[in-house]
Design a protein around this nucleic acid. Structure first.
Lengths: 407, 407
DNA sequence: GGTATACGTTGTGGCAAACAACAAACGCGT
DNA sequence: ACGCGTTTGTTGTTTGCCACAACGTATACC
């Protein structure tokens, strides 16, 4: 069911419209503002068809047409710009061990409002869900009256089951088979069904769409939170695996008889480049491991121990390069602070352990979205259904979230 | 360019027809014989639409309609069967270190003729290309007069560049940046443009479509030839990577200071489970390493050394399970003979090093196509353009290969 | 200010799939 | 053997979407 594309099902002409409308909206969403002529070129459709699609987006309240803005180049009648109307928005949540961020993100990827709060100390899922809803109330307080909520996305540092959003394992939260999607959806009721994603997966998605990997279809986002996870984009699509668990690169076997990992095995990559290992290397106190990134910011010289970590990082990355052949590897989380210190050691090991062909193609870099990758990824995840079927999704959108959340 | 599906381009109604025709042909090709009612159900289109598509396939000479064959169940008018017409065929080549196989494979995946020959001892690419053409002449000798050659596919044990089929590296052939696609296409002329694929990638493709992974959309085929490579199917699609180099799992870092690998690094997985390591473990003479599989067939007891190899195999597989979350792992090449001997050791290590969530989903198994996985994969690779655009591909098909090759 | 260029708009046409109605072929019960 | 219900094939019609061509319009350039 693969070779002939799209898993063996036929295409309806209704599907055509849905696909084209969604694709057009996707371009508008990613660009924020794009000319109709550019849309025509990118989508390979006729001018008149694009005009019809844009008109429909406009009537759906998803886009606006405006006079061209940028300085023109060349002759000819200037093309009308299509702007994403930020009235259609999502709620994005970045749940971390050390903090909670909720944002209202408009179509086009603009953060319209954001709020942060602490995570309940015991990591009780019900209490966390309550906190999430509290923060949501804050960010929708001043929303426009005609705005429509089209989705809710959450980034969680754990292994998420794809079909129902069950959190199979989130070691840093102490969660094991926690039905957090269900817990939160009970609090949101008919407002929107929340969608959970692994933090690294969302980082990859965001960097692919709006960060260091724009235009790149093969990308790995390596997330250093406490453990190490990877989000992978291959051929422009998320690598999900059979159950949605793909990307647990931190538990790649790395040393035959290494330290004991929390997963029960020995010698996982994570035991060498995870937060505890780095904390040990730089003398960071155990209770500050959660905020290792900030601690690393204060380090300006790479000690031999830290350089050893860098070599481990490079050697492990070589494995990802050989197996996945990405064009970009984005280092997120505390790796963002670590990488500049040990870049040469990473590169050196990559040089040794990476095969020439894939190694020549890869670029190791920092996130283009700074520390907001996961938050943006959660927003993008929430937008996905809208982009797949604008009309259908809008039919279930919630128009008065403020009072719905108040009740 | 990703989220909204199909890389941001719009869909034409011409595309619709092409897609539906190709998808219908794909179903016929995979099933060999399928009822129109079944096609209707699988593709989700209307009866009359399917009738039109099948009629077009028939007029293109790609399918035949026939009275239903199987014993019917239930009431109602029996549905007409659609059979793949094997007159449309490809030439598939499996190039190994120790031998060359060429087959004529008809639509539907039926091997109509096959021929094997030795590989020139010096592995000279020009000589090999000549041998390939010689064998091709044999398998097209008795081809039907109206048969059409629609593609040529080759499996090569090396790293193939995706865009032009350059063999970047084939250590077992001693090739480095050999333009084998070009060399062969010069000999084939206008008959067909050959398409090269990595042997492991083709094994994965074949097992996915016709072997142990039918109906499975996430699969890893681990190919033990001399080195170890992997072909990966994720979400029903080939994992290719930026340059088509993805899957070089044999060079995953495995031991910090292991044996020197031919790639220049130390401690690659391949140095522990590659053919030389196994040969050492079972006392296979160095000159028989190429035929390690046959040698292993004669081994009936797992020695401690061999069991150590099994544990390494299991530990490495755990890395693939954690990173890729496949539903099936197929062990091909000499691993086919090795696995039954060390299954328990593999499973035990997988149990320790695999994370629970993905481990619970995976099945490690042997190829459903025996030793012909790569050959079938080469055929499927060659069929792909036909399934993507039947009409367009047939326009360039070659009708009289026999005399074209003779000249 | 004229011209070339590029884009928007409108109406027409073609094409593919859906749909409805009828005919055909089978199993099953009487 | 016969009628009935069921499923499928066939045919003609309808619907919907996009392509296309012709024309109007807005800019840059000379």
């Amino acid at each position: 069911m693969a070779t002939a594309g799209r898993s063996g099902v036929g295409t309806n002409q209704e599907d055509v419209r849905r696909h084209n409308l969604g694709t057009a909206l996707g371009h508008v969403h990613r660009a924020g503002r794009i000319s109709r002529a550019e849309l025509t070129a990118r989508m390979g459709l006729n001018r008149s068809t694009i005009a019809g699609l844009v008109a429909e987006l406009e009537s759906l309240g998803l886009a606006d047409q405006a006079k061209p803005s940028g300085t023109r180049i060349g002759a000819g009648r200037p093309s009308v710009d299509v702007k994403a109307r930020t009235g259609a928005y999502v709620l994005a949540v970045d749940l971390r061990v050390d903090g909670l961020t909720v944002a209202r993100v408009g179509l086009g990827g603009v953060v319209r409002a954001r709020a942060t709060g602490p995570v309940p100390a015991d990591h009780d899922p019900y209490a966390i869900a309550d906190s999430v809803v509290d923060l949501m109330r804050l960010v929708v307080r001043d929303v426009e009256p005609d705005a429509a909520l089209v989705g809710v996305g959450l980034g969680v540092p754990g292994i998420i089951r794809g079909d129902d959003g069950l959190v199979r394992l989130a070691p840093n939260l102490g969660w094991h088979d926690v039905p957090f999607t269900k817990i939160l959806s009970e609090r949101l009721g008919p407002i929107a069904m929340p969608v959970l994603g692994n933090d690294a997966d969302l980082g990859a998605l965001a960097e692919h769409l709006r960060g260091a990997g724009v235009g790149v279809d093969d990308l790995v986002y390596l997330s250093g939170e406490v453990g190490v996870g990877a989000g992978v984009i291959v051929g422009g699509r998320k690598l999900e695996g059979a159950g949605g668990y793909a990307g647990e690169i931190g538990h790649m076997p790395f040393l035959p008889d290494g330290k004991l990992c929390h997963c029960g095995a020995r010698g996982c990559w994570e035991t060498e480049i995870g937060a505890p290992a780095i904390a040990l290397a730089i003398g960071c106190p155990a209770e500050q491991v959660g905020a290792l990134g900030e601690f690393l910011e204060g380090v300006h010289e790479a000690t031999p121990d830290l350089r050893a970590v860098g070599r481990h990082l490079g050697r492990g990355l070589a494995g990802a390069v050989n197996l996945l052949n990405p064009r970009v590897i984005v280092l997120g989380g505390y790796l963002r602070s670590l990488f500049p210190l040990v870049r040469e050691d990473v590169d050196a090991e990559l040089q040794v352990h990476g095969l020439a062909a894939p190694r020549e193609q890869v670029l190791v870099t920092l996130p283009g979205l700074g520390g907001d990758s996961v938050l943006h990824g959660a927003a993008e995840l929430a937008f996905e259904p809208l982009l797949a079927d604008p009309v259908g999704r809008l039919a279930t959108a919630c128009l008065d979230v403020d009072s719905a959340l108040a009740g």
